[in-house]
Structures are given as C-alpha cells and as structure tokens.
Design a binder for these strands. Sequence first.
DNA 1: TTGAAAGCGCTAACAC
DNA 2: GTGTTAGCGCTTTCAA
Lengths: 331, 331
Amino acid sequence: MRVRQQDIARATGFSINTVSLALRGSPRIGEGTRKLILAEAERLNYSPNRIAQLLVGSASRTVGLILTDVMNPTLTLAARTIERKLSEAHYGMMFAASGHDVEAERRALLRFQSYQVDGVLVYPADNGRLEHLERARDAGVPVILLANAETTLDVVTVDDEAGARKAVGHLLARGHRRIGMIDGSGTARTSPKVDGALRALAEAGLPRAALEVVRPEGNSARDGHSAMGALAAGRPMPTAVFASTDALAIGALKWCAENGRSVPADLAVMGYDNTEIAAYCALPLSTVHYAADTISALAVDRLIEVVETDRREPPVVRRLVEPELIVRGTT
Amino acid sequence: MRVRQQDIARATGFSINTVSLALRGSPRIGEGTRKLILAEAERLNYSPNRIAQLLVGSASRTVGLILTDVMNPTLTLAARTIERKLSEAHYGMMFAASGHDVEAERRALLRFQSYQVDGVLVYPADNGRLEHLERARDAGVPVILLANAETTLDVVTVDDEAGARKAVGHLLARGHRRIGMIDGSGTARTSPKVDGALRALAEAGLPRAALEVVRPEGNSARDGHSAMGALAAGRPMPTAVFASTDALAIGALKWCAENGRSVPADLAVMGYDNTEIAAYCALPLSTVHYAADTISALAVDRLIEVVETDRREPPVVRRLVEPELIVRGTT
DNA sequence: TTGAAAGCGCTAACAC
DNA sequence: GTGTTAGCGCTTTCAA
C-alpha cells in the first residue's frame, strides 16, 4: 500500500527514527545518511502520514472557515482572500457553510475540532448565539469572528453601523427627508446597519419615523424587487432608498425601471456593495463600499498571530474597519 | 486536557474497549452497560478523536474540493451545492483554490491525500495537465473531474461544446452572418466553446472566417468591455457577439451602451450564463444556461457512489450535461 | 458479555 | 550519530 518510514528504514538499513529525523532535517543526522535517506524517500515516493503526525501531537497547520453561505458575493470574496492568505502562510483550510443554521454551525465546529484545526474563522449563523464558539475558544481553539456582535471573542470585521450612518447621512445631506431602508439582515437580533441609519437621522435632528424599514426574507435581487414594491405602497412614499446589500439595491432599481420611477430624478437608491457589478452595469447606484478582501486578510493575520504566539490569554481584539462612500450618478 | 475513552473507562470501571464498543453501539454490549457508558460520556462531554480513529484506518468521510477560483460565480455555485450535498450525506469537505496554477493544485492534492480524504472533486487548473490527478486515482483516491478533458478520469460536467453550438446556431438562425466571440478560456489548450461555435458555422455551411474570436486575459466584465472594443475595431464589424461567460457579456453590453450601439437593434449580444444577474438587470442578453448546481450534485452523487462501492476498477464515467438556450429580449 | 493485547505511522525521551 | 523504547487515542483480533 502506502510507503511508510518503515519501508525507507528497511531499504536503507537505518532505523525508523533515523529516517524520521533525517526527513525532518535534524542536525543530529550525518550529511551522508541524510542524503541517502532523502534519496530513498524520493525514489519510493514517500509522503508523510499527517494523521499519524497529528496523533502524536503536532500543530495541524490547518484552520477552519465557517461561512453562512458562499453565494453571498461578499463572503465569496472573503473565502477567496482567506484561502489565499492561509495558503501563502502554508496553512490548509477546512470549509463549511452553516446556511444560517446554528446547529449546522455547531456540527461544523465540532468536526473542525476533531480534526485538530489550529483555529477557526467564523461568519456566524446568528449574532446572538455564540456560546458554542466561546466554549471552543475556552477549550483552546482560537476563534475569530468575522461579524460584529456582543461577545468576548476576537472580532475583525467591517463597521456596518458607521457605513450605514455614512450612507443615510449622505442621502439626508442631499435633502431627502423620507428614507426607505431595505434591510436583509434576516433573523439576526440586531442590525448594525439599521442602528447606523437611525444614528444618522438623530444627528440630523430628524424623527425615527423618517426611516421606513422593510425586511425581506433573503438578500437576492428578487427580494430587493419585492421589498421596493412594499416601500412604494407605503404613504408617504420615500424619496430615497438605502439597501443593505447591492443585490437588494439592484432588485430595487429593477422595480423602479418597471414602474416608471426614474432614478435618481424621482428617487435615489443607494446600496451597500462589495462587487464590481453595480459599477459595470453602469447603474445609477451610489454605494457604501468596503474591501472585504482587506478585512479578511486582517482577520487571517490576527488568527495566525494568535495561533503562533501560544499565549494562554491573548488580549481580545476588536477591530472594526470603516467603509467608504462611493457616489455614482447624482444620488 | 481532552476527554478520552480512557477517562470514561476509569470513571465507569469498564475497560477501554468496552467503552469503545458501547459508544459505537455494538450489540455485543449489554443494554445496561451501554446506557451507563453513554451517560458518562455525555457527562464528561466526550467527543471522539477523529485523528486517532483515522490512524487506525477508517474512512475519513471527508472529500477534497479543488477549484481554480471561487470568485467565478459558476464555481461558487458549484462549491455551495457540493458542500450541501456532502453535508447531507454526512461528509465533510476540505477546500483549496488552485488559482489556475498546476503546482498549487498538486500541493492541494497531496495535502488532501495526507489527510486521507475519501475522494477528490477537481475543477482542474489546466485541462492538459492531469497526470498528478491520474496518479492519485491510481493510488486509490477516487477523483472526479468537473471539466471536460482528454482523460481516463471520471468526468461530470456541462457539455460546453453543445452549448456554444446552440448559442451560435441561434444567432445564425436569426440571420447573423458575422459573429464575434469573446472567449475567456485563458491559457487552456482547447476551447470546447470555440469548437462548438465552429461546428454551428459548419452546419450552416458558413466558412470559419464568419467567426472572429477575441481572447481576453480574464473573465471579468472589464475584460469583456475591452474585448468588445477589439471586436468593434475589426472590419467588418460583427452583427452579433457570443461571450463565453455572462460577466464578459455584461462588459460587452456596457461597451455598446457607451458607444451608441443599441442592442439588439444594431447588434445582438449573447452570453453563457449561470447566474440571475443578467435576468435581474433586465439586460437585453440571451444566454445559454446550465444548472451548475444540478451538475455539481450529479458529480457528488457519482463520487459517493465510487467511494462507497469499494470496487477496484469501477467503470469510468463520462457524463456531459447539455445546457439550455434562454432567449431574452429579441436577440 | 467483557477484558487483554497488539498495532495503525509517527515522534520523542533516553540510551549507547 | 544512531538505535531502543514508549506512547499518542483508538479499533480489532482473540481469550476468557
């Protein structure tokens, strides 16, 4: 079957652990023997059994990534960046998608732990249910959260509240006084984007009623389309709309096109974006943009730092990166 | 540190392998003891050490997925579907992205093998360099290729040649006689989509010169934009364009909008699509569509079949699914 | 129905 | 420099 150190030992006449040491380049092994053993290993096409190495207790140089759903372009970009950074640092990656299901997240976490991952990056299924992650951290598995939440876990993510505040602040500065918001944060207890929008209102001295929030089920363009319909049905109809993702905003724009609302003349639509689609479709869509790749890279850096500096109680990090406003068209 | 079967054994007074058997529900263990042991395991919060289980030689119930790049929406969808299907079948997944680099692909493959994955799904970095995959297959790791290539490996993928033939055939049927093609197949030796396009021409009795192929570097909307510029600069300018991905087609459309070419009055643009973007942007874009999710699901089914029926020489499967034509607007 | 012992492939402590 | 021995946590004969 597979070639083991045993086989190299037999073939060269050395003992098995001389082989082991030689393969790992120990200085205790003579130059000559080392070359001999390496040559034989090469010839037999030996590749080490990581499972056995792990059992004996080394670091796995593997980290787990749990996302809610890869189809979300932001998370896709995050996944790519994370995979690349890890790969550069010679770490492998295990992957799981929770589908916003806390149970699935828990199972994935257990699986990762049983594979002895060195750490875990999590975009959590539910901001309010993080006990299992905290328990894992307490059991010695470094965990970095890729979303903002009330927790003692390390957090590296975008500052959505600041972003939404910028977006709505911009709309208010342009004179809009009735803002619709399409918020796709789903079942999450809290919505930093809504909080940010409300803060912008407060800062402008406007009442909460100036913001009408619609919460579609998902985050697809289809959801944005129907949500825009719901906003339009309300009285008074908003003059500007802030959508929590670019797909929702694109759906809203489609509704406007179909219903003869010109954008931004009649109505301004603003999205929260991370992809190039809006730009390339030349849509009249201003956005609040953040570099999901940059932020993911920061998260990986932090994880590797925690993993490799093997301290018992590293200080908790809470790093929130503020997104930028990008105005397209005249919104 | 971690709870082991040893600890349960000590706590209950049974021997370690009575514990092992009980935990796995062996009928050889008495009802009473089993309950006692399970209760104690629960109490101590025992979770099995998969690494040790693997060392002793069981199946890992893990498969590896190697893609070129997750940012490609098709591959993203594939990744999601594969993860879900595997998860339903109680398989874990390891993930790696090759970035079209054969060396990276080889490294990922080795890493997966060293983790004793039960099988590997690969969207290959280079259709012409598959030796390492074939070697892995020969070494006993089932490999399913997610792209069409000259190989003895199992193949489950879309029939791109048939799709391109349909697309170009449609354009020809609409009376177009000068077709531009934007082909983002990069450095690949062969391009089934170009082959399909040529076949459509041949079937219509037209010369090869009726097709002008431009090959941009990448597959982004930006690439499609400049490629369309290149096509337009040619004489005679094509009256219809077939782009090998929807992002390229969107870029081409943008070029048309910027340069006063109305679509489809002046020009017809057709893409090869897998996402809902084109539909939701209400773009005048007909597409050849395939269900990347359905196909990925077939691939997973096949892999699990191969893995679980432990035959030495399972017959090689070559499953090519034909995509559908979807006409939007009047292209 | 339960226990003792061997071993998966590797690393590490200690001898020589 | 190199070999011997023990052991990582689990499963799997084989006895009792």
